Computed example of a mutant assay.
Amino acid sequence: MRLIIDARYTRYGFHDGISRYTASLLEALKKLHDEQHPLCADLEIIMAISDIRQLKMLPDMDYILVSSPTNIREPFIARTLNKYHPDVVFSPMQTIGSWGKKFHLILTLHDLIYYEHPTPPSFLPRPIQWGWRLFHRSYTPQRLLLNRADAVATVSQTSAQLIRQHHLTKKPLHIIPNAAATGSIVSEEQAQDRIAHRQKTLLYMGSFMEYKNVETLMIAMKDLPEYRLLLLSRISEQRQQELHQYVTDNIEFCHGVSDEEYQQLLATSTALLTASRAEGYGLPVVEAQAQGCPVVISDIDIFHEIAPHGLHCNPEDPQAFVQAIRTLENTAHYQQVVREGLRDAQRFSWKESALQLLNVATNMTRANT
């Protein structure tokens, strides 16, 4: 089976959510292939990229160079891919062109966030931002996109339930979840040993889009003067100015950290926080629990799914976050939260997600023989 993975959404220099999802799946697939897993017999994996710079963020695998997903030729990209004779193409998005395809296609819809919160990512070109807003005014365009596929993937039971609730596809729906980085889950002994060395530092990792609701966390810091909140991600000057009214002396904008710095902070900080109103998965939550770092998180369905033992708070109530953080000052409670958080994180792995993708792809090709 020849499997092409659409890696054209890989960022340069740092990952965002979809970029990391793609790279992590590819790394797990490569490891399974190198280990000669039975599902990899006669398997050829090829990455489709649109810029050579993307290779720095991806594993060392065969690749093809094709046009960007924002190129005007995108509706006809399948004709280009046909030249490489794939049996299956997997895309981490749902917008890849399928006109004239001669292969099985698996599309991915991570979440339905932008129907409720339609503001597009600011890094997209202006015309695409306009199209983004129009696209999310109705479910009909999404149905048309997804029903071009032979199967649809999503990252969580919560997203799958919403896809079914809104009847977004008639095609088979599969869950291929996110996970903490392979090998990053610490042992319980190591996690407990870290507790005594953790500092009064709180972390936020994620974008600053409005639905992320960072304001709640910043307001809470007024009543946590002995703690400091590190806002780890890159932020535009405009958005930082909008948040300026909430800034106190114990809040710091980090404007991005390396993966190594992020792992060190997860190993030494009191907790990771998020007051997000919606998520498709919430990878930083699982990454934190994998490092023995408690999570104080919104009381929303997806966080109950991926982190049932996190400390769940009303995302509109800063005092709820203050009170939850204060409970972590009890050593016995902190130890319990760490133990339970590790068990939450251990339920997900990129190996299992890669195997799920291979199962879907393999069953497609077998059905045609």
Rank of each mutant, 00 (worst) to 15 (best):
A153S: 13
H167V: 00
D62Y: 12
Q161I: 14
K212N: 08
A180E: 00
E189K: 14
S24V: 00
I77N: 05
D51Y: 01
V286Q: 06
L358N: 07
H174D: 06
E252V: 14
S19M: 01
F123M: 12
L25E: 04
L357T: 01
L217G: 09
E189L: 10
N314H: 10
M209D: 15
N314G: 10
V285D: 04
T80F: 09
V338Y: 05
L81Y: 02
V214M: 00
I5D: 05
Q263G: 00
R239E: 13
I302W: 00
Y12M: 14
T248H: 08
Q336K: 15
S19C: 02
Q190I: 13
L230Y: 12
I306Y: 02
R73Q: 13
P315D: 09
T10R: 04
F303W: 01
A345C: 03
E237V: 13
D51V: 10
D193L: 14
Q289D: 05
P141L: 01
T362F: 10
G292D: 05
I219F: 05
T362I: 14
S353C: 01
L283C: 08
Q289C: 07
A324G: 11
P38G: 09
G341C: 08
N363K: 15
G183S: 00
Y246G: 08
P294Y: 01
F348C: 12
E226K: 14
V295Q: 01
R73N: 13
P225Y: 02
E261Q: 15
A332G: 12
R366F: 13
H197M: 12
S122F: 14
S298I: 10
Q165G: 11
H167A: 11
S269W: 00
Q319V: 05
N359V: 12
D34C: 12
T140H: 06
Q336I: 06
M61S: 07
E305W: 08
Q356L: 11
I5K: 03
L173R: 04
R347D: 09
L283G: 10
E340T: 13
R228G: 03
E74Q: 13
Y115G: 11
D42N: 15
S349V: 03
L3W: 06
L328K: 00
V295W: 01
F253W: 03
V257K: 03
L355E: 08
E189D: 15
S159N: 06
I251T: 04
L342N: 01
G206H: 05
E261T: 13
G341A: 09
Q157D: 14
L231T: 06
A220C: 05
K101E: 01
V285A: 09
F348D: 04
I297M: 10
L25R: 07
M57Q: 12
D344R: 07
H136D: 03
E226I: 12
H255M: 07
W130Q: 14
H309M: 10
F76I: 06
T216P: 11
H37C: 09
V295E: 03
T80I: 13
A151E: 04
P308G: 12
R8I: 05
M209N: 15
A278D: 14
I18V: 15
S187L: 01
E237H: 14
E210H: 15
V285M: 06
N213D: 10
